[in-house]
């Protein structure tokens, strides 16, 4: 099928884009288009205007000191403390997340998950911001953003604001963004020195929307004990499911090794957290969580460069 008719505007500034979005509530932002255009081709979406933000300078990848640029008062969630951050423009392509060494070094979970997003051809156009704003419950990147406590920069008629990514998705394909707001940047806390991450997902075919996917990142102290774990699952709830607390409480934090009973406890904790999910997804979530914990831990015990396969 062909796309339904619409007006096309290539915005030259965020302000111009926002003003068009403000003027017409049926207008829509076009980022990479890899999810929106299929919906339109099925005539399931009929936007009046597509506001293309490709010409905006939103493809930057920059490692900065600390999260000091984030306005904690507006963000609504916890702000990462100390260390470095990576600022990623909303239009950074998923293929860049997958292949850019600085992303793999700074946010290995993001790089690992990106490899599972769609297919090589869609990742060359699909964007980080588009994925987050589309809020597909099966998408990997929103879960990674929730797990890592990323903070988004959102521009609306009143100017920019900060928003914790955990507050972005509100339900199936629904976000807390106003119709005239644009997601322009996402800031992830950078990995510490002894950090490991793993993305594990399963679907009947690789590249399909996952039946469940779990991302885990751990930090170790000098003695090799896990000091912190963050985790989230996609595809098991209307919004990314934060598993960090459940896994920490299962005894992962403080562990210096992962004996079988601990992995089983981690699986049970994740399965229980996902118990509201349809079918047998909860069990799968538990399996994937245990595997992701094991692999993240394994990764943290090696120099980071070796983990990226």
């Amino acid at each position: 099928m062909k796309l339904p008719p619409f007006e096309y505007l290539r915005a030259s500034s965020a302000a111009e884009a926002v003003s068009v979005l403000s003027a017409d509530e049926d207008s829509k932002v076009l980022a990479g288009g890899q999810s929106l255009l299929p919906l339109m081709a099925l005539r399931l979406a009929h936007p009046t205007v597509l506001v293309d933000i490709a010409a905006l300078d939103l493809a930057g990848v920059e490692v900065v000191d600390g999260p000091s640029h984030i306005d904690a008062s507006s963000c609504g969630g916890p702000v990462p403390k100390g260390g470095k951050s990576i600022r990623l423009g909303a239009m950074v392509r998923q293929s860049v997340l997958e292949s850019e060494p600085v992303v793999a070094e700074t946010v290995p979970l993001l790089a690992a998950a990106a490899r599972y997003v769609g297919h090589p051809a869609t990742r060359n156009l699909g964007t980080l911001g588009g994925s987050l704003a589309h809020a597909d419950p099966a998408a990997e990147l929103p879960a990674v953003a929730v797990a890592l406590g990323a903070v988004a920069v959102v521009v609306g008629p009143a100017g920019p604001r900060h928003l914790a990514c955990s507050l972005l998705a509100e339900g199936y394909f629904t976000t807390s963004l106003a119709p005239d707001e644009i997601l322009t940047e996402i800031c992830f806390p950078a990995a510490g020195p002894r950090h490991g991450a793993a993305w594990c997902e399963w679907s009947p075919r690789v590249g399909d929307f996952a039946e469940a996917g779990v991302g885990v990142a751990v930090d170790l102290d000098g003695d090799g004990a896990i000091t912190a774990i963050v985790a989230a699952a996609c595809s098991v709830a209307p919004v990314p499911l934060d598993l960090g607390t459940a896994l920490a409480d299962a005894g992962v934090v403080g562990a210096t090794s992962l004996p079988d009973p601990l992995l089983r406890a981690a699986a049970r904790a994740a399965e229980s957290a996902a118990s509201g999910s349809p079918g047998d997804k909860a069990e799968l979530t538990g399996l994937l969580a245990a595997r992701a914990v094991a692999r993240a831990f394994q990764g943290a015990r090696k120099p980071i460069a070796e983990v990226q396969t």
Binding site: Y116, E201, R264, A266, R268, L287, R291
Partner: peptide
């Protein structure tokens, strides 16, 4: 029922790149 520990530690599981 699957054993989560065994599955987690397998060298390769289906669907993994």
């Amino acid at each position: 029922r699957p054993d989560a520990a065994g599955w987690a530690l397998r060298a390769r599981v289906p669907g993994e790149l």
